[in-house]
Design a protein around this nucleic acid. Structure first.
Lengths: 258, 258
DNA sequence: AAGTGGTCTAGACCACAAG
DNA sequence: TTGTGGTCTAGACCACTTA
C-alpha cells in the first residue's frame, strides 16, 4: 500500500499543525467565530517554536479559514451572507423601481446602502476598456466615474464606469447626481437603448489598493466583471469594471438556451 | 499635509521591500518570467535578516505577483492565456459540433484536451446540490460524476455533475462513456430538453485538495460555478459544480435585455 | 558542488485589545 | 497590566535545481 502524500505523517510540523486545526474547524470542534489557542499556546502544545505555530496559522489564514485580530486572537471566519446580483439587474423593469440593483439587494438584507462618488474625471482609458468601448487608448477619450459601494458602512464593491467623453461632455453625466434613472436614463436620452450586455468575469487576488478600499482580510479574492452595454445598433456605449469582494458576492445568470 | 499611510515611509522593512519590488515589477524593471534577486541577496542589499526579505517575497506571492520555485529562485509570474467560456456553451448548436466547449476552447488555443473520469458513484448529495436538483439530502439520491479537465496535461478545471439516481440508474449515464452528445444526449432521451440554465458564480481560495489537483500556486483563487439545467417544464434535471483555476479562466455571459 | 527556496529555533521588542 | 498578534534577528539544516 502506498503512503498518502497529503496525509499527516512525514509533513513539516507547521503543516501538520495547520492540518489538525483545519480538521478541528471543519468538524466543528472550533465553531465559526470561535477563538483558536494563541500562537504561544499552540507552540507549547506541539513542542515547537512560536514561529512554527504562527506559520500554521498563516496557512489557514491564506485559505480564508481563519482571521487574526491584532491584540485579541485568531478566530474561525464566519460565513457571510452573499450579495446576490442576478442577470435581471440590467433590465428596465428593475431600473424602474427607482432603486439600483445594489440598493435593492442591500434592502433585502436589511442593510443601509451608501454609494460614494470618489471621482469623475476625463482620462485616457485602460487598454481593455478602450477596446470594448471602441475609443482610442492614446487620447483622453473617456469620462471615468468611480464609485465605492457600502452596506452598513462596510465596503462591498468598486465600480469604474467609462463613457465616451464626446458624448458625456456638458451633460449631467459629468455631475455627481445624474438625475432620474441614473446614467442609463441620460444615455437613453442620447439615443442609446440598452438591448444587450456582455459580462466578462474573472477572479484574482486584490491589489494592495483594492484590499485597503474593500477592507479585505487575507485569503479573500475579488471577482472582476468587465461589463459592456450595447445599444439597439449593437454599438457599445458604456463599459464598467466591477471589483467585488468575493466573500460577499454571488453573481447569478439565468439564460434561455436557444 | 497629512502623511499617506500607505507610502513607503514608516512601514516595517518587509513591507517596504515588498513595495519596492512591486513597483519594480509593475514598471517593468523586472519583466514577466524574470528572476528576482535571491532572498539572501535581498537581505544583504537591505541590511535585513533573510527572514525579512523572505516575508517580502511572501507578500508578493500571496498577491499572485511572483512565484517561488524551490531550488531555482523567485520569478515574476507571467500572465496566462485565458480559457474563455461563453454563455453559448450550453447551446444546442454548440453541442452539435460534436466537441464539448472545453475541447473547442482547447483547440482554439492549440492545446490538447484530456478529460479524466475520476469517479462515478451513487451518493448523498451536498445540501446546495440537493436543493437545486430537488432531491433529498438524506438519501443516496444522486449519481455523482466527477471529471478533471486538462489542456496539454495542465489541469484546468474540476467538474462534479449530479443527476437523479432514479433516472440515471441502469442507463449509460452510469458509464464512463455516455455515447453521442454526452450526458445531455442521454438526458434528452429521458425527456429533458434543456431550455434554461442558471449559473451561480462565486470565487474563493482553493481547498488544499483542489490546490493539489489543479496544481495551484499560492495567490491563485478558484471560480466556483453552480450550474443548474432546467427542462421544458422548468424542472431542474442536472446540477454541476465547476471549480475553475482563476488564473486560466474567463467566463463570458451575453444577455439580451428584455 | 554551489546556490536556491523551505523550514525551524529561541529568543526579542513593538502595537494593539481588553479587563 | 496582561495577553495577543506583528515583526525582526542570526543563526541552522534540509530539499531541490542546475551546472
Amino acid at each position: 500500500m502506498a503512503t498518502t502524500p497529503g496525509s499527516s505523517s512525514n509533513q513539516p510540523p507547521s503543516r501538520r499543525i495547520a492540518e489538525e486545526l483545519r480538521a478541528a474547524i471543519e468538524s466543528g470542534r472550533f465553531a465559526a467565530g470561535e477563538k483558536l489557542p494563541s500562537e504561544r499556546a499552540l507552540a507549547q502544545q506541539y513542542g515547537a517554536a512560536r514561529n512554527t505555530a504562527r506559520e500554521a496559522i498563516r496557512i489557514l489564514s491564506e485559505e480564508g479559514l481563519v482571521t487574526a485580530r491584532h491584540g485579541s486572537g485568531v478566530f474561525v471566519r464566519e460565513p457571510q451572507r452573499l450579495f446576490r446580483f442576478g442577470s435581471d439587474r440590467y433590465s428596465r423593469s428593475n431600473r424602474e423601481t427607482g432603486l439600483t440593483p445594489f440598493r435593492l439587494e442591500a434592502r433585502r438584507q436589511g442593510k443601509e446602502a451608501r454609494i460614494d462618488v470618489v471621482g469623475i474625471t476625463r482620462e485616457r482609458p485602460p487598454r481593455d476598456i478602450a477596446e470594448r468601448l471602441g475609443v482610442s487608448a492614446d487620447e483622453e477619450s473617456v469620462l471615468h466615474r468611480e464609485n465605492h459601494y457600502f452596506a452598513d458602512d462596510e465596503p462591498v464593491q468598486i465600480v469604474s464606469t467609462y463613457l465616451r467623453w464626446a458624448e458625456a461632455e456638458g451633460t449631467p453625466l459629468t455631475q455627481p447626481r445624474t438625475g432620474k434613472d441614473g446614467i442609463y436614463g441620460r444615455l437613453e436620452e442620447l439615443g442609446h437603448v440598452m438591448t444587450r450586455v456582455r459580462d466578462e468575469i474573472t477572479a484574482r487576488m486584490p491589489t494592495p489598493a483594492e484590499a485597503e478600499v474593500l477592507g479585505l482580510l487575507s485569503g479573500v479574492p475579488v471577482i472582476e466583471v468587465l461589463h459592456t452595454s450595447l445599444d439597439q445598433e449593437s454599438e457599445p456605449f458604456e463599459v464598467s469594471r466591477y471589483v467585488h469582494r468575493a466573500d460577499l458576492t454571488g453573481l447569478l445568470y439565468e439564460l434561455s438556451v436557444e
